[in-house]
Design a protein around this nucleic acid. Structure first.
Length: 783
DNA sequence: AGATATTCTGTTTTT
DNA sequence: CAGAATATCT
């Protein structure tokens, strides 16, 4: 390769040999196996820049997909740095966004219109429930059915492709609901997340001519975090970049596959060389991120997984400080201690708040941490993705907007038919839906002539007409207005959503009204960004486009309101100003792909992390498979990978924290230290073998055992966390038949008890004509 | 109809 | 414990 091009050396100079090899790779498939912190995103972005600047590949020929919005955003930013304005012509997005954009262009081919809306999880659940009700199915949980429908979609199977054994009645039910569910979505001109991919794959399969248009355009496809692709996504990739020889570059790390529950299949990356024979394989094994102690700890955790691609991560970095183990009394103490350590690190002066992060397994854990940080005046940002758009009032507003674009969306209509309250109650709604179902038309359509609906009184008909008029007016407005903010503003005016909330007068309703104003603000900001992007695109039109290729931006010609709604559905809120002098708080899943000087990994307890579900699956797995060599269940293996991801985010300092007891789901739980802690040699924490925390043993009278996660051997009295003296401390043993006293009801006998601890609900048979009462345990006195 | 109280339930991760 | 579903009251 001659250094004829001045860009070449600049793009390559700070890369190591394998990184360079990946960037320089010519045509054909390439698999980059890259360990944590080995610079994989750098390789992808450099390669894109190299293709454009050195090989003169037109940017509009490049499609780069990632898994999460954050990753896509970051990749785009880096590419803007490398390529400047040219970066705008690239398609850099998540699988779902890219699929949504293509699907919108081709909507007519799949029985949708261009204004289709995207249903999220709770919309999906509502549709499942309605489909079940109509089919008269009550024997299964809607959640379970939805879960199985999602799995089918992840596996690229439509209802007719489902494989159900003849005797599998539940499977039959799922298929039946799935089919009805799909029909409802199509009738509502709506898709769910899974459809975005599945419908596109189906379209490409049935219409090779349509697929051909995209193949002609995208000559280079690059995929980050390939270990997290599920079968539909892989199918889509194979269509766009068919084996054996397409220019498909996939980058990933099997040890960081953490989306199995969403259908991700590690075999995609493990088997890539078989799917694309002749693919070049490059391994990135030098870690540039973490000090050796951190790397060692991470390695000790991950090496227990059996099915891995062998990689030897090494580093030239120093050993660094030891890891810190923080043992706390409970989750509140944990929060305080984290806050204290953060402030201490900041005071030392080497680490800024913006390069510190606190991780946890589940979102619910963030509240206590937030409280502690707030109290200690540590500025923080909650990196939660989409909490804003999940608020009830914002969802209501979005539902109205979606109806403005697509009035057939029954799920949205049902959501807001009586918001704000307009006297359309459950009975009326039921009659309207029954009528619409019988006719097989949308609710909106039925509302044009509500007098035809049987059993409705005059008042109800009138209110329905008023509601329909409101929707008509809004829909008409949406057709003439070209800005998202204009539509939001008009909608808020006509629906009086804000006014109604303000009139309520409570603090909470004020906050909600405020959120709606913020929603308007988000729309205004969206319009501004969009205008700026349009100017930039006009200044840099795709160049040298052959006549048979459509190189327009995928989002061209999408009306503003629709684009805004799509952003809400798929992207959520833009990242809050992370890094702006604030500590970042996030789940372990959200942490993937990021790095920080100091990381606090909290809740390192069995049943918290690893999550109780995985612990449970482990025991059933061991029972069923009787795997004597202790091979971990897939679920547990994934928790382990998650832990690996968490550890390897840290550059210099890794604080691992646990609590001896923690309120979980309203009960005090004593969890053993996480098994992942035991995998880390104590020396890495700078402690001796004896100092490794043991399973806590709360003081328990007599022979009672500690209550663990899933054992339930009947109610017991437990005096172990006794604070007050004479009150019954709570249920922890067999209390049936026990004599108790209540201030008001007098003396009685315990019939049964629910739960344990001081808040258990105890059913007591009182004397003196009082009879059975349900009492909270702490209001009872023994004897 | 609608507001409010009560019971029940299911507790992860995200596009 | 919190959100959903359900019961009860106005």
């Amino acid at each position: 390769m001659s250094p004829a091009n001045p860009h070449e050396s600049a793009l390559l100079e700070d890369l190591n040999a394998p990184q360079r090899e990946a960037v320089l790779h010519g045509d054909g498939p390439l698999l980059v196996l890259s360990g944590a912190g080995s610079g994989k995103t750098r390789v992808i972005t450099r390669r894109v820049a190299y293709l454009v600047k050195v090989h003169n590949v037109y940017p509009w020929r490049i499609l780069a997909v990632t898994f999460t919005n954050k990753a896509a955003r970051e990749m785009r930013e880096r590419l803007v740095q490398l390529l400047g304005a040219q970066a705008n012509e690239l398609v850099v997005s998540t699988f779902h966004s890219a699929a949504a954009q293509i699907l919108r262009r081709e909507a007519e081919h799949v029985g949708l219109t261009r204004s289709f809306v995207i249903y999220d999880d709770s919309d999906q659940l509502n549709v499942v429930k309605r489909a079940m009700r109509e089919a008269g199915i009550e024997s299964m949980q809607p959640r379970e059915i939805l879960h199985r429908i999602d799995q089918e979609k992840n596996a690229a199977r439509l209802p007719e492709h489902m494989q159900v054994a003849p005797g599998d009645e539940r499977g039959q039910l799922v298929r039946k609901v799935y089919a009805a569910y799909q029909e409802r979505l199509r009738a509502a001109n709506a898709v769910d997340f899974g459809d975005l991919l599945l419908l596109l794959v189906t379209l490409f399969r049935t219409r090779p001519d349509v697929l051909e248009n995209y193949r002609r355009r995208f000559h280079h496809v690059l995929v980050d975090e390939f270990q997290d692709t599920n079968p539909v996504q892989y199918a889509l990739l194979k269509q766009l970049a068919p084996p054996p020889s397409a220019n498909l570059v996939v980058v990933g790390d099997d040890d960081q596959s953490i989306y199995r529950w969403r259908g991700a299949d590690v075999d995609n990356i493990l088997g890539f060389p078989r799917q694309y024979p002749g693919a070049k394989v490059v391994k990135l094994e030098q870690n540039y991120r973490s000090d050796q102690n951190i790397l060692d700890a991470a390695h000790e955790v991950i090496r227990k997984n059996t099915r891995r691609m062998e990689k030897k991560l090494w580093s030239e970095r120093q050993r660094g400080q030891t890891l810190n183990l923080m043992l706390n009394r409970d989750e509140r103490a944990e929060g305080q201690e984290v806050a204290r350590q953060i402030l201490a690190l900041q005071r030392e002066g080497f680490i800024k708040l913006s390069s510190m992060a606190v991780f946890y397994r589940a979102n619910a854990q963030s509240r206590v941490l937030e409280e502690a940080l707030r109290l200690a005046r540590v500025p923080y940002t909650l990196v939660s993705g989409r909490s804003f758009y999940d608020r009830a009032e914002v969802r209501d507003a979005s539902a109205y907007l979606r109806l403005m674009v697509n009035p057939r969306s029954d799920a949205d209509l049902l959501r807001i038919i009586n918001i704000p309250a307009r006297g359309i109650g459950d009975t009326t709604v039921e009659r309207v839906t029954d009528f619409a179902n019988a006719r097989g038309v949308s609710l909106y359509e039925v509302l044009s002539q509500p007098e035809q609906i049987p059993a409705l009184n005059g008042a109800a008909v009138k209110r329905l007409k008023g509601f329909r008029n409101l929707l008509e007016s809004l829909t008409a407005f949406a057709q003439t207005n070209e800005e998202a903010a204009g539509a939001v503003d008009q909608m808020l005016r006509e629906t009086k959503l804000v006014e109604t909330l303000q009139a309520e007068g409570s603090d909470e309703s004020q906050t909600r009204a405020e959120n709606l104003r913020e929603f308007l603000g988000a729309a205004q900001e969206f319009d501004l960004n969009r205008a700026a992007a349009a100017v930039a695109a006009a200044a840099n039109p795709p160049s040298d486009v052959p006549p048979e290729v459509d190189a327009a931006p995928l989002t061209a010609d999408v009306p503003a309101l629709q684009a805004f709604l799509e952003q809400i559905s798929l992207v959520g809120e833009a990242d809050a100003e992370v890094g702006d002098g604030r500590v970042a708080l996030m789940t372990l899943h959200a942490a993937k792909g990021l790095e920080f000087d100091a990381v606090f990994l909290t809740g390192m307890e069995e049943n918290v992390f690893p999550h109780s579900r995985a612990v449970k699956s482990e025991s059933t797995f061991l029972n069923e498979v009787a795997s004597a060599d202790g091979e971990p269940s897939e679920e547990m293996a994934e928790e382990r990978r998650l832990c690996y991801v968490g550890f390897t985010r840290a550059r210099k300092r890794l604080f691992v924290s646990l609590a001896q007891c923690r309120s979980l789901f309203g009960e005090l739980r004593y969890n053993a230290p996480s098994r992942f802690l035991r995998d880390v040699p104590p020396a890495l924490f700078g402690i001796s073998e004896q100092e490794v925390p043991e399973a806590p043993r709360p003081m328990v009278p007599s022979t009672q055992r500690r209550r663990t996660w899933d054992e339930d051997d009947g109610p017991r009295i437990d005096r172990s966390y006794s604070q007050a003296s004479s009150d019954m401390d709570g249920v922890g043993g067999d209390v049936r038949g026990m004599r108790v006293r209540h201030e008001q009801f007098g003396v009685g006998r315990v019939v049964s008890a629910d739960g344990n601890g001081p808040n258990a609900k105890v059913t007591v048979e009182f004397g003196g004509g009082v009879g059975l009462k349900r009492i909270i345990a702490r209001f009872l006195i023994p004897g």
